[in-house]
């Protein structure tokens, strides 16, 4: 699902991998990953930590599950996409809100805090 969305991104740049603790992994453009401050620092090539070398972000806090990681990546794509649209275009924020299942919101909040976004 996310793959399809992301391929629509016209952004060139390289691909980076985001992994969750339970084995899911997501391939996204670097631009998308940069939505998260933590990931941006992680992938920063000037500091060149191990993650930047392998272009792989262990996306979330160790205890996060795939579902959280997926929602994070979905939001990152959402934000990266709508960040650049003109002021006239409608941003379907409420649609996105509906897609967040209430039972994970707290967990998602913690993860988002950790990811600085």
């Amino acid at each position: 699902m996310t793959d399809v969305e992301i391929r629509n991104e016209p952004k060139d740049s390289d691909w980076v991998r985001i992994t969750s603790t339970d084995g899911f992994s997501y391939l996204v453009r670097r631009k998308v990953a940069n939505v998260s401050g933590t990931m941006r620092n992680m992938l920063d090539t000037t500091s060149n930590y191990a993650e930047a070398v392998t272009k792989t972000c262990p996306a979330v806090n160790r205890h996060s599950r795939g579902i959280i990681a997926e929602k994070l990546v979905e939001y990152m794509c959402f934000k990266a996409h709508y960040e650049t649209v003109g002021p006239k275009e409608d941003i379907p924020v409420s649609d996105y809100m509906e897609r967040v299942p209430p039972e994970i919101v707290l967990e998602l909040l913690l993860a988002a805090d950790y990811q600085e976004m």
Binding site: T38, N41, M42, Y49, A50, E51, A52, V53, R62, Y114
Partner: peptide, 15 residues
Amino acid sequence: NAQNLSFEENHRFAY
């Protein structure tokens, strides 16, 4: 030696 270290791990320590 930063390239041998996991950013995530250290970030998590500090966190």
